[in-house]
């Protein structure tokens, strides 16, 4: 069964025995996986399962207690993320990565206009032409279905769904290859959620993004992700294709999670 290598055989990100302890308490333990270009991986589990700790370690927002996270840089080299210089790491975070927070206020500058929120990353990498920055911002606003006339309004004047879409535009403007998402639809009305999910699904497939999304909502995982990791007590207890995990869950806890979904 010598399987031929698939295209993009090189992983984009690799976590090896990633562990984060909070004193005696376990944040996440011994997490090992690879993420390939274009893959959407959902990390699911209930509150306290360690999924957000894991996301924070993967995105270098939190230093792990043990283990390694490696990332394939744009030049093709695989680098240990916690051995990057701070300048390299921050550049990575604002160019090749995105991070979509659950609360848009954590990911937006609430006191500056929508246009400046989208344009900030461009200015951070040296774009110095106002007209070009504004043009790109307008383009992105329309891609996330925000009316162009709102470009000079601050996000304070936006609804929850619009803020979230603005946050997505702000992250995607530098064409990142990897986007981390922490409960991106949490706290939104169901109808607003559906629109956001649909938008995300389209953007992810059009742009060929790799995504690691943390959610407790299995419907979100089903709609967006290719693969799933189920976490409990800081450990990954089941992984696999999203539809396999949801339709034929193996671990007792996964069966419980799946059976708890309300059927409408």
């Amino acid at each position: 069964m010598s399987a031929k290598p698939l295209p993009d055989e090189e992983p984009l990100l690799r976590a090896s025995a990633l562990t984060r302890l909070y004193g005696e308490r376990i944040g996440c333990r011994d997490v090992t996986f690879e993420l390939y270009p274009g893959e959407v991986l959902a990390i699911v589990g209930e509150s306290g399962s360690g999924k957000t700790t894991l996301l924070d370690c993967l995105s270098t927002r939190l230093a792990p207690t043990a283990g390694i996270v490696e990332y394939r840089m744009r030049d093709g080299t695989m680098r240990d993320l916690f051995r990057l210089t701070e300048a390299e790491r921050r550049l990575l975070m604002r160019t090749d990565w995105g991070f979509v927070h659950q609360h848009a206020a954590d990911g937006l500058r609430m006191s500056v206009s929508a246009g400046a929120n989208v344009g900030e990353r461009l200015m951070a990498v040296g774009e110095r032409h106002y007209g070009d920055i504004r043009g790109t911002a307008l383009d992105w606003l329309s891609r996330v279905e925000i009316d162009e006339s709102r470009i000079d309004d601050t996000p304070r004047a936006f609804s929850g769904g619009m803020r979230q879409r603005l946050q997505i535009a702000r992250n995607l403007v530098t064409n990142p290859r990897l986007v981390f998402m922490d409960e991106p639809t949490g706290g939104l009305d169901v109808s607003v959620q559906a629109r956001l999910l649909d938008l995300l699904r389209g953007l992810v497939s059009d742009l060929g993004l790799s995504v690691i999304i943390v959610t407790h909502d299995l419907a979100v995982a089903r709609l967006l992700s290719h693969r799933m990791m189920v976490m409990r007590h800081g450990k990954v207890i089941e992984t696999g294709l999203t539809d396999r995990v949801l339709d034929d869950p193996q671990a007792p806890y996964t069966q419980l999670l799946v059976s708890s979904i309300l059927q409408v």
């Binding site: 400046a116 200015m123 106002y130 000079d152």
Partner: peptide, 20 residues
């Protein structure tokens, strides 16, 4: 940190806001 790493994009955000 921004000074240390010469990350000055934010300064232009202020000027952008002015023009906008």
């Amino acid at each position: 940190k921004m000074h240390a790493l010469a990350e000055y994009g934010l300064m232009h955000v202020k000027l952008y806001e002015d023009i906008a």
